[in-house]
């Protein structure tokens, strides 16, 4: 006991440590952004100058037409569409999986084409909304074919370097002899000049 007498307490004052850490924290909060690398992925068609101009006749029944005008109003299969956009998803699923039953709808999933045409004045928000539904319809179908959820399917499709994922991805899309049974035939036409539909 006597030995301790007169000696200073050997403790470093660390009460300002929290302040220093706070300062660093705020610095990082200000200078960084949360990485956002998620979104709707899309494969663009080749350069229009490289495509041979062949007139291909596509039967009306194999086309699912969606048009958006400059006021963001929808025209689905020639009819004004005032309902909730999410209903398009079910309509596309019915259309693609028709397999020739309904003479008004597609022959087979292979032939089914979803055509999306916008106007130059259509807002990106509306376009994304509709594109989201179209892609969602196809992802739902693929996911159902291999018995996973939509979310799991998108995770599989995002990482194709894993051979198991690659196999599931091909199975979901029905890859057979180098051809897909369920291709996502999405045709996005060049926007029309303002006014038209």
């Amino acid at each position: 006991m006597a030995r301790n007498k007169g000696r200073d307490n050997p403790e470093i004052n660390s009460s300002s440590m929290a302040d220093i850490a706070f300062l660093l924290l705020i610095f990082f909060l200000v200078t960084t952004t949360i990485a956002n690398d998620r979104g709707l992925s899309l494969q663009l068609p080749p350069n229009p100058e490289d495509i041979e101009n062949i007139d291909i006749k596509i039967p009306e029944r194999n086309l699912f037409k969606i048009q958006i005008n400059s006021a963001d109003r929808l025209l689905v299969e020639g009819e004004p569409f005032e309902q909730d956009v999410t209903e398009i998803k079910e309509m596309i699923k019915d259309f693609v999986l028709n397999n020739g039953r309904d003479p008004e709808s597609s022959d087979s999933p292979k032939d089914a084409i979803v055509s999306l045409k916008t106007d130059r004045g259509t807002s990106q928000e509306r376009y994304i909304e509709v594109l989201d539904e179209i892609q969602g319809a196809y992802y739902d179908m693929y996911a159902a074919r291999i018995g996973v959820t939509n979310k799991e399917w998108r995770d599989i499709a995002s990482d194709l370097t894993d051979p198991e994922n690659r196999r599931l991805y091909d199975e979901g899309r029905g890859l057979k002899d180098g051809k897909l049974e369920y291709p996502m035939n999405l045709s996005i036409a060049e926007p029309s000049k303002t006014g038209g539909g």
Binding site: P45, D119, S123, Q124, P191
Partner: peptide
């Protein structure tokens, strides 16, 4: 792309991307 941006401009950029053979596209959402 900002949600208020018009398709016309975005489509012009897409056409150039096709010409430049950069065809993998992602709309960040």
């Amino acid at each position: 792309v900002d949600r208020e941006a018009k398709r016309g401009l975005v489509a012009d950029v897409e056409l150039e991307l096709r010409k430049a053979n950069a065809r993998k596209l992602l709309y960040t959402t």
